[in-house]
């Protein structure tokens, strides 16, 4: 396949990153992962004796899906850096999805802590994929800090509100020289297609699949939506026009 996604030298044929959060159990998750065609998925780091989680890594290994540890739950740069270091140790990867949120109600990224953490992690040799607000200035600052990808939200995590500011996403895409991954807020397939039509390199989503009535079916829908949106982006959409433009030849003398 010619149209590959490349992040920090690693190539992916799928442009959908399906997170593992929210699935009712590992068997539901496995079917969704397989149906989605994803090659990379997020995992979190939690206490070993309370989570019941050892199964998720075995599952990913079995499915051939790469694990991208996140720093979910961190409120400060210091917490995020320690979590990333622990994840590197536990999972043998220097890739990290950096996520530093400001409060529990919105789960919106804290821009100051995120940028601070990004700088420290890049200096420590991490490949940083940074979850960020849909702010073109911040996205640029994260790229300048050395992030391998910037991941603006469409809307708050788990809200399913879709892409609330498509123009900002376009601005970010237009000026970025690293891949832009739309992360968070996807509710249904058309949101994922829109992200790709706006020029995003990939889409990261979890809740919209794992908490759908039928996760496996929604995973397929997302896979197809991401492909369709990507194709439409590459095909080049027609310009928007105020007035109609006939698609049949003009009528002359009756016909």
């Amino acid at each position: 396949m010619d149209d590959v996604l490349e992040i920090a030298g690693r190539r992916f044929s799928s442009r959908l990153v399906l997170g593992t959060g929210g699935a009712a159990n590992l068997s539901v998750l496995e079917r969704a992962l397989v149906a989605s065609g994803t090659e990379l998925t997020t995992v979190s780091l939690r206490r070993a004796d309370t989570s019941g989680g050892p199964g998720v890594l075995d599952l990913l290994r079995r499915c051939g899906v790469g694990a991208l540890p996140n720093t979910a739950g961190c409120r400060s740069a210091a917490e995020a850096v320690l979590t990333a270091q622990l994840a590197r140790e536990a999972l043998d990867t220097n890739w990290v999805k950096l996520e530093v949120v400001a409060d529990e109600d919105t789960l919106l990224p804290d821009p100051f802590e995120t940028l601070d953490a990004a700088e420290r992690l890049v200096a420590d040799g991490f490949t940083v994929l940074a979850y960020t607000n849909d702010d073109p200035v911040l996205a640029r600052r994260l790229e300048d800090a050395g992030c391998a990808a910037v991941m603006p939200l469409g809307s708050p995590i788990g809200s399913g509100l879709g892409i609330r500011n498509p123009h900002n996403i376009e601005l970010i895409v237009n000026r970025a020289s690293v891949p832009v991954v739309l992360d968070a807020g996807i509710g249904t397939a058309s949101d994922a297609a829109l992200a790709m039509e706006l020029g995003c390199a990939a889409v990261l989503l979890a809740t919209s699949v794992t908490r759908a009535d039928e996760p496996e079916r929604m995973a397929r829908a997302m896979r197809d939506a991401v492909r369709a949106g990507r194709e439409a982006r590459l095909a080049g959409r027609i310009p928007r026009r105020f007035w109609a433009r006939a698609s049949s030849p003009a009528v002359e003398g009756g016909w």
């Binding site: 995992v43 979190s44 939690r46 890594l57 622990l86």
Partner: peptide
């Protein structure tokens, strides 16, 4: 502070030490 795996067997604990043992779980 992170304790790299290679140092587990030679890192002695002191009374009152706080240890976090973490692993990957579903999330994100």
């Amino acid at each position: 502070q992170l304790v790299p795996r290679a140092e587990w067997t030679r890192t002695e604990l002191t009374p009152g030490a706080r240890l976090e043992v973490l692993t990957a779980v579903q999330g994100g």
